[in-house]
């Protein structure tokens, strides 16, 4: 991808000293992000998986996103109008990436068939993943920033902040309790992953908490 992304300043919490540090939200996934994924994320993830394996932790409990190929995913949607990518860069390194889709409809009864921004894929860099590190991450806040980006994108597109996503099991608690989305239960048409949705009112509540 060659398009220069638009950059929005954001802040991440550096966990080593608890300080907020400057970061950038990019409205795209560029060659730089994909190079970071290949050269930095992938070796670190393999190292962490090896550690899980050595500890005897069963594969079912390893991060399900370990097979995600971000280069293939972004290439597949390069010219699509209904997909939008985002990334977070801090310390000259990609800290998280997200792909959203604009042609899905809401399932909640009160929002049924209304347009929403569907979060197809979201992943933080391995060094930011509390679930596999077994220690505090380097930076905290990537997930919340990307969810806020999806909400803002939804508002910009006229969808009033509505978003939806299927959650990997290790993230269910984050979406239900930290983000405050409605849990619509396991979706048998989507590998039984739980489907979560956010109403315009829930989006406002989440925005207030972060302000």
């Amino acid at each position: 991808m060659t398009k220069e992304p638009e950059i929005t300043p954001v802040g991440l919490k550096r966990m080593s000293d608890g300080q907020m540090v400057d970061a950038e939200l990019w409205d795209g996934i560029t060659d730089k992000n994909l190079a970071d994924w290949e050269a930095k994320w992938t070796p670190e993830l393999l190292r962490l998986l090896e550690a899980l394996h050595d500890k005897g932790i069963e594969r079912a409990l390893w991060p399900q996103s370990r097979h995600w190929d971000w280069r293939a995913k972004t290439q597949a949607i390069e010219k699509r109008l209904d997909e939008q990518c985002f990334s977070i860069v801090c310390d000259n390194l990609t800290q998280a990436m997200m792909i959203t889709e604009l042609t899905k409809r809401a399932r909640l009864e009160s929002q049924r068939n209304e347009h929403l921004v569907y979060v197809s894929f979201v992943e933080a860099a391995p060094w930011n993943r509390r679930d596999i590190l077994g220690k505090p991450p380097d930076y905290s806040g990537c997930g919340s920033i990307l969810i806020r980006a999806a909400i803002e994108f939804s508002k910009l597109e006229g969808f009033k902040g509505r978003i939806g996503l299927h959650s990997l099991p290790q993230s269910n608690d984050f979406y239900a309790n930290k983000v405050g989305m409605t849990d619509l239960g396991a979706d048998e048409d989507y590998d039984n992953l739980r489907y979560f949705e956010m109403t315009p009112e829930q989006a406002e509540e989440f925005a207030k908490e972060g302000s």
């Binding site: 699509r80 209904d82 042609t103 597109e157």
Partner: peptide
């Protein structure tokens, strides 16, 4: 714009 996205898809 939404119609164009759907048409493309």
């Amino acid at each position: 714009r939404q119609a164009l996205r759907l048409y493309q898809r």
